[in-house]
């Protein structure tokens, strides 16, 4: 287990998240993909904290986790609003501002 192994794993997880973000069309599934990507970023923070020393990486990861939780709360509120307005949560329905 070296630093580059950890970064490669995080890159793989992030890429899977990007795939989900682009290929899914339900808003909750897109939120799941965003979770995957944030999780991958946290792995990099913790890996650098471990292999380079210091607490800063872990502090950053703590803040990042708090940010992600806030994002999930707002994202699910948006999903609920969308469900109420359109009766479905397909992301394509929310293109009103384009027209």
């Amino acid at each position: 287990m070296t630093l580059s192994h950890c970064i490669l794993l995080a890159a793989a997880l992030f890429s899977v998240g990007v795939y989900g973000l682009l290929a899914r069309r339900q808003i909750v599934a897109i939120l799941l993909s965003i979770e995957l990507m944030a999780n991958a970023a946290n792995i990099v923070f913790v890996a650098f904290a471990h292999f380079r020393g210091g607490t800063l990486g872990q502090v950053f990861a703590v803040f990042s986790i708090a940010l992600t939780v806030a994002e999930v709360a707002v994202g699910l509120a948006l999903a609920m609003l969308m469900y109420r307005r359109y009766g479905d949560t397909q992301i394509g329905l929310a293109s009103e501002m384009k027209r």
């Binding site: 970064i7 490669l8 890429s15 899977v16 795939y19 973000l21 290929a23 394509g92």
Partner: peptide
């Protein structure tokens, strides 16, 4: 759950991973 562009999404994700790797 999937939209029509999952093939393109797979390509984008693979390119991203390969460039980072």
């Amino acid at each position: 759950l999937e939209n029509a562009r999952s093939g393109a999404a797979a390509i984008v994700a693979s390119v991203l991973f390969l460039s980072v790797a």
